[in-house]
């Protein structure tokens, strides 16, 4: 192995490549710590103008935050419900054939590949302003994302477990219900809750393109330089994100621990 200044040639080439890539990326984006340092006084000025928060329109902002929550709930649920059955078609170990597998996977990739904001713009153009296009945007993205993750979770199920259920004479549907779903339930739940949390944050941004929720109020207050209202909106958003995180953690703990105690004391 050739060495330059005691360093292996392969390592040296790799190091130079990494330096070139980062230089290219930093140069292209104009990333400059000096500019950031120069901006600190403006940042302090901007933040100081936010205080004290203005709660005059608190009720309106709270109602809009609730609308954002509603969008996240409906969007996540619809997305998960659509993704659930489709994910079995996109899992190698369950799909009826390869054509269906590739077709459903491609659908998931398209739906997941388009960002919620882009979906928001598309649906606002389709059905007008308000929370409904936001719900559709979240549903579309979540269907693609959860479909992909659900199908990958299904593929991780131990084939021996499937084999054992098949060996009892169970039908394919019964194998899915009794062999696969119990094994992937915690993963499905985790992914769904993660996307619910994510959707609340995404729903706030969707307001920026006119797809309803608290994001619309945020962008309006920012444009009108009502910085104290901006702070109120941010406080509401942060508190809600924290509450949703706690709620998700509680559900995760509860459901993962839970075991169905079916049957009865038939041996007495």
């Amino acid at each position: 192995m050739k060495r330059f200044f005691g360093i292996k040639r392969k390592s040296l080439l790799l190091s130079i490549s990494i330096v070139i890539i980062y230089y290219w990326a930093l140069k292209g984006t104009g990333t400059n710590p000096i500019a950031l340092a120069k901006g600190v006084p403006y940042m302090i000025d901007f933040v100081s103008r936010m205080f004290p928060p203005d709660f005059t329109n608190f009720n309106l902002f709270f109602m809009k935050a609730m609308e954002t929550l509603q969008m996240a709930i409906v969007g996540s649920t619809l997305g998960a419900l659509i993704a659930l059955p489709l994910s079995f078609l996109a899992a190698r170990n369950v799909t009826p054939n390869k054509t269906i597998y590739h077709f459903v996977r491609s659908i998931f990739d398209i739906f997941r590949g388009i960002n919620e904001i882009v979906w928001g713009l598309i649906f606002v153009a389709m059905v007008g302003l308000g929370p409904f296009p936001g719900v559709l945007a979240l549903t579309a993205h979540v269907t693609g994302a959860l479909g992909r993750y659900f199908s990958e979770a299904i593929e991780t199920v131990n084939p021996d477990v499937i084999k054992a259920i098949v060996s009892t004479g169970a039908s394919k549907t019964q194998v899915i219900i009794k062999g696969i779903i119990p094994e992937v339930k915690p993963l499905f739940l985790n992914y769904s809750l993660y996307y619910f949390e994510n959707n609340f944050r995404a729903a706030t941004v969707l307001g920026l393109v006119g797809a309803g929720g608290i994001g619309m109020e945020l962008i309006t207050s920012m444009r009108l330089f009502r910085n104290q209202e901006v702070l109120t909106i941010l406080i509401i958003m942060i508190v809600m994100v924290m509450l949703i995180d706690r709620f998700s953690a509680y559900i995760r703990k509860k459901v993962i621990k839970d075991i169905s105690l079916d049957g009865g004391t038939y041996w007495n």
């Binding site: 131990n158 021996d160 477990v161 084999k163 054992a164 259920i165 009892t168 004479g169 169970a170 039908s171 019964q174 009794k178 062999g179 119990p182 094994e183 339930k185 915690p186 075991i259 169905s260 105690l261 079916d262 049957g263």
Partner: peptide
């Protein structure tokens, strides 16, 4: 390797024998 559904109870696993 026993091939049981690990997340389920003894009852549920044995009940799988009745699926047919």
């Amino acid at each position: 390797n026993f091939n049981l559904v690990n997340r389920e109870t003894v009852w549920s696993n044995v009940m799988n024998g009745r699926l047919k």
